[in-house]
Simulated scan of single mutants.
Amino acid sequence: MTSNPTGRITTIIDPGDALGEVLFGLIMALTLTVGSRLVFEEEGLDVRELVVATIGCNVAWGIIDAVLFILGTTFYKSRRLRLFRQIKAARSESAALTVLAREFPIEKAPFAAEAADTDALYRSLLTLAGRADPVKVSLAKGDLLTGIAVFLLVSATSIPAVVPFLLIDNADLALRTSNLFLIMLLFVTGYAWASFSGGRPFYAGMTMTCLGLLLVAIAIALGG
Rank of each mutant, 00 (worst) to 15 (best):
M1H: 12
T2N: 08
R8Q: 12
I13K: 02
A18M: 09
E21F: 15
V22A: 14
L23T: 01
F24A: 08
F24C: 04
G25N: 03
L26A: 06
I27D: 08
I27M: 10
M28F: 13
L32E: 03
G35Y: 03
S36F: 12
R37T: 13
L38I: 08
L38H: 07
E41V: 13
E43H: 12
E43K: 11
E43S: 11
D46Q: 12
I70V: 14
F75Y: 10
K77G: 05
L81C: 00
F84D: 04
R85Q: 12
I87V: 15
A89F: 00
E93M: 02
S94L: 09
A95F: 00
L97F: 06
V99H: 08
A101H: 07
R102V: 01
R102A: 13
I106P: 01
K108P: 00
A112Y: 02
A113D: 02
D117C: 07
T118V: 14
A120P: 01
Y122R: 07
R123G: 10
L125Y: 07
T127K: 12
L128P: 00
S138Q: 06
L139M: 12
T146D: 03
F151W: 09
V154Q: 05
S158N: 06
P160S: 10
A161V: 06
D172Y: 09
L173W: 07
A174C: 11
N179W: 06
F187Q: 03
F187C: 06
T189N: 11
W193R: 15
W193Y: 15
S197C: 04
G198Q: 10
F202S: 08
A204P: 03
L214I: 07
L215K: 09
A217T: 10
I218V: 14
A219R: 12
A219M: 14
A221M: 09
G223I: 14
